[in-house]
């Protein structure tokens, strides 16, 4: 049984799955049916050092940069509508390949073109992030953040971080104003 997290809660993934090598991060959402502008949500990952900054632009994994240079983080591609069963987007993390200087991997989701389409996360229902062991696809942890959805256009859903030799996952659920570009800049991308 996967651990269901509340905002701010964390779980030790290495304890949940002692043989864990590769992690699948599943992201899901369910925009309300409407004839207004369609929703296009994008998941992205940031490889961050201890100071909370990325080493460079290549540590920003998103729809235009699907794989980190070290091969540890792979974005499985963009789902532009959020329609369909299962995860809307998947990001895989090969924990054994994550460079030692990377302390955490932050997973954010942004709404594409949110300003023109007058959209925000409050309008997205059933948003969640879950962690699965790639070996057997067993769900290890899950965070449903609909009730924590902000009226902002970008959100950090969660983060995977080192705790000594182990890996932990934290349910973040933090809104961020402005969308993908400012979110990326806050992690030192494009600086």
């Amino acid at each position: 049984m996967a651990i269901s997290l509340q905002k701010g809660g964390n779980v030790n993934l290495s304890k949940e799955a002692p043989s864990l090598k590769k992690l699948i991060i599943g992201l899901g959402w369910d925009p309300r049916a409407t004839d207004g502008a369609t929703f296009d949500l994008d998941g992205s990952a940031f490889l961050l050092k201890a100071d909370g900054k990325a080493r460079g632009d290549s540590d920003f994994i998103f729809y235009n940069n699907l794989k980190s240079t070290d091969g540890s983080v792979t974005h499985m591609g963009d789902n532009t509508t959020g329609v369909g069963e299962g995860d809307d987007e998947k990001i895989t993390i090969d924990l054994s390949m994550v460079p030692a200087e990377i302390e955490k991997i932050t997973i954010g989701v942004t709404i594409h073109d949110a300003e023109t389409r007058k959209q925000n996360f409050g309008m997205v229902g059933k948003a969640y992030i879950r962690c699965l062991d790639a070996n057997g696809e067993k769900e290890l942890a899950r965070y449903d953040l609909s009730e924590d959805s902000s009226t902002e256009t970008a959100m950090v859903f969660g983060e995977i971080y080192r705790a000594g030799a182990e890996w932990k996952f934290k349910a973040v659920g933090q809104g961020f104003a402005g969308g993908l570009a400012p979110l990326a800049r806050s992690f030192g991308i494009g600086a």
Binding site: K118, N120, F121, G122, M123, V124, E147, S149, T151
Partner: peptide, 10 residues
């Protein structure tokens, strides 16, 4: 009084 934005919950 709270001014609610689209998508805001209370």
């Amino acid at each position: 009084m709270t001014q609610l934005a689209k998508g805001q919950r209370l």
